[in-house]
Simulated scan of single mutants.
Amino acid sequence: MVLESISGFYCKLIEVGTEKYTQKMEVEHIKLWNKSFLSLSLLFFAISVYDFIYISSLISYCFFLLSILFFYTIFTDLKFNALAQTFTYLLLSFIFFYISSHIGLGSGIYFYYIPLILSLPVFFKISRNKKAIVLICFFLFFMMFLDIKTNSVKHPVNDMIFFESLLGSIGLVFWLVCFIIRKQAISIKYYKKRVGIWKREAEIDIDKLKEVIDMAVQNSSHFFPKFKELYPYFCERLIEIQPNVVASEQEFCAYIKLGFTTKEIAKFTNSSIRSIEGKKYRIRRKYNINEKVDIYVWAANL
């Protein structure tokens, strides 16, 4: 019972935030982020416990607070917010500097600067977040410079803290490498699937596509069955994402997939424009399509 409860809690934790997305790759990326931040939180928590038991210094309190911070990010969108990410990097670099300045360079706390620098291109898109990366790099090197300057007075070397710092930084680098590999694996898997779909779409018989479009224009009862023959994967994805989708909603999505405008769909189905707009709104709600996402782009990428 206990193991089942823990397993159930873990599954719910990993699923946090996935309900906002419809694309399978996005959902898998969210799950990966949640798993990664949970493991990062546990790593920091383990360091804080180790330090509290064997060393009992201010490091334990710092790492304990960091573990809570990273656990909290699972329940929020902070992990995708550039401003929050920048603040987290600055906070981490300041914490490492603060600890190191109090217990000396012999503690090996400076090892933690390595995973901080290496992780920058992973958490920030270089083309979009150049200013944030420059700011963080400047702050990191400034902290490192201050670290060396403020440690001109020799502190007693603590082998236990040095060992902890070394293992902790290695653990963070290992976490980073695992995260990159798994993220790339998800992207490759998704793009292979997309290439397969694009290939099938490229091989679609133009005459059959014209036939399906003519059936849609004439509001033929044979339109949707023929559409499903032409785009079987599209209907499969609709059901996969939302199992309780009904046939009429699938047929409406078929019109969207073929690129018909609201006016055209209203004309072909003998409906009012307001009625079609209402159907679009219900589809958006049912599939959790963000307001900023064009519904035609969503259908094309499904």
Rank of each mutant, 00 (worst) to 15 (best):
Y233S: 02
P225R: 05
M160N: 09
D159K: 14
N34R: 04
I188C: 05
K130I: 05
Q250D: 04
Q85W: 04
L90H: 02
M1L: 08
V157H: 13
V16S: 05
L78I: 05
L40M: 12
I103T: 03
K149E: 13
G8R: 15
V134M: 06
M160I: 11
I180R: 04
Y287M: 10
K125D: 05
I47N: 00
V177D: 07
F124R: 10
F52I: 05
F87M: 12
L58C: 07
A84P: 09
E15V: 03
T18W: 06
I265D: 01
F163I: 12
F75C: 11
V153T: 11
K189V: 06
K131F: 08
F97L: 14
R284N: 09
S67I: 05
S127D: 15
K149N: 12
A46I: 14
K31R: 15
S187A: 12
G104V: 00
I181M: 15
K125R: 15
I180H: 11
E277H: 07
S119E: 02
M160T: 12
K31L: 05
I273L: 06
S48H: 08
L258I: 04
F252N: 04
W298D: 02
F71K: 11
L146N: 14
I103K: 00
S152R: 15
N158Q: 11
K267Q: 14
L13N: 10
F97S: 00
G196E: 13
I53G: 08
T88Y: 04
S101C: 14
V49E: 10
K20R: 15
V245H: 00
T22Y: 13
L83E: 13
L43W: 02
Q242M: 10
A84F: 09
T86V: 07
T261L: 05
D294G: 06
I53T: 02
F163H: 12
K292W: 03
R284V: 06
V2K: 15
K193H: 12
Y10G: 05
L38Y: 01
L146G: 06
K149S: 09
S60T: 02
D77P: 08
L91Y: 13
S271D: 02
G108N: 01
Y233E: 13
G278R: 15
L105A: 03
L90R: 10
T18R: 14
L167Y: 03
Y50V: 09
Y21I: 07
A299V: 01
H29G: 07
K35A: 06
I204C: 05
T18C: 15
I186Y: 03
N34K: 03
D294K: 14
I103C: 07
S272H: 08
K183Q: 11
R284A: 07
F111L: 10
G171F: 01
H222M: 15
N34P: 04
I213Q: 12
G259M: 11
A202H: 08
C11Q: 14
I204R: 07
F111T: 01
S152P: 03
W298M: 03
H29N: 13
W298C: 04
V49D: 01
I74W: 01
K31M: 04
Y110V: 10
